[in-house]
């Protein structure tokens, strides 16, 4: 292997400035069409959530008995007043969709972050310390897993009272165990790998080993799990809101709208279809983007992808030349 060959691989070019890194990130992302589309949709959802008061044509909670169940604008009975129609109380579906993005994203991300950081921390300690610490932590996890999640949630909400913050805490409380189990398993198997032993021989303390050697290698599986969990939480939020234990009216969320629209599904498809589409597309976009991110955060995978790209380019050139 010669030095010149090594020097020509662009992925490792030093990029000092932050904005250049961002530019590089977008340039690399735009090569993967599906991931780029997913990323764009996510940006759209976040923008919608942030600027909902400016974008929404109506107050999402304003009821109008006269304008009940108006179909979307492009159908025969629709009007430009309500682009995506109105629900059974005459509330504007588009406005509710924009405001609903707030609740769904807020609950989804904060639950994943809260449950994830707690679960990962316990998993790291459990897997690395082993022995009695591990036994105690894993038995606690077993107890939590064995307890019916919905029952626990109902119990807690009944005790504290329904509200969005309560829902976040309660959902985090009943969803952290899966992170602990995943992380513990990986850390236990990683403990025996020579590079962890090498780090110990070099004099690294447990904290540095976990931070520098274990955690970065946990990013791909954790990313995948967090995304699966995010979608789970979106649905759990919908279920809780449906039961009246989550987002409280006049607040909105996609899940609450699906729950409400369900009863009128045969009369009017739009109050349930659009929030449903919003959830499905968000989940899909996150998956596409996360898949790309997982590959990008792994140096070896990244180089393989780079090589595949070069190969495709060469083949295309060869085909063009006859």
């Amino acid at each position: 292997m010669t030095a010149t060959h090594l020097a020509t691989i662009p992925a490792q070019r030093p990029r000092p400035a932050v904005f250049r890194a961002a530019g590089g990130f977008l340039a690399e992302l735009s090569k993967d069409k599906a991931a780029f589309a997913g990323f764009l949709f996510l940006v759209l959802v976040v923008l919608a959530a942030v600027f909902a008061p400016l974008l929404a044509p109506h107050d999402p909670a304003a009821q109008s008995v006269l304008a009940r169940l108006k179909p979307p604008a492009w159908t025969a009975r629709g009007s430009a007043e309500h682009l995506l129609g109105t629900d059974m109380l005459g509330r504007d579906v588009l406005s509710r969709l924009l405001y609903g993005a707030r609740a769904s994203l807020l609950v989804g991300t904060s639950v994943v972050l809260l449950a994830g950081s707690f679960g990962v921390l316990l998993g790291l300690v459990s897997g690395y310390r082993g022995g009695r610490t591990d036994t105690v932590i894993m038995r606690v996890v077993d107890v939590f897993v064995a307890f019916p999640g919905l029952l626990l949630t109902l119990l807690l909400v009944a005790m504290i009272g329904p509200s969005t913050p309560t829902m976040i805490v309660v959902l985090a409380f009943s969803n952290w165990m899966i992170y602990t189990r995943l992380v513990r398993g990986i850390v236990m198997s990683m403990r025996t790998t020579p590079f962890i032993e090498a780090a110990e021989v070099l004099g690294c303390g447990p904290r540095r080993i976990l931070q520098v050697h274990v955690l970065p290698n946990l990013v791909p599986p954790l990313l995948t799990l967090a995304i699966l969990e995010f979608t789970n939480i979106l649905l759990a939020e919908a279920a809780l809101s449906f039961l009246g234990l989550g987002v409280q009216p006049p607040g909105t969320s996609w899940g609450l709208d699906i729950a409400n629209g369900k009863n009128y599904m045969l009369l009017a498809w739009w109050p349930i279809t659009f929030p449903g589409l919003a959830i499905a597309l968000t989940v899909l976009s996150i998956n596409l983007f996360a898949n790309w991110l997982r590959v990008t955060t792994d140096p070896a995978e990244r180089e393989k992808r780079h090589a595949r790209g070069r190969l495709r380019l060469l083949r295309r050139k060869a085909a063009a030349n006859g």
Binding site: P194, A198, L202, N217, A300
Partner: peptide
């Protein structure tokens, strides 16, 4: 560990890939 160091058997798994 400043005075005693180690070289490992498997050069593939003894270096952190990240």
């Amino acid at each position: 560990s400043r005075d005693i160091q180690m070289v490992f058997q498997d050069p593939y798994t003894s270096l952190n890939p990240r």
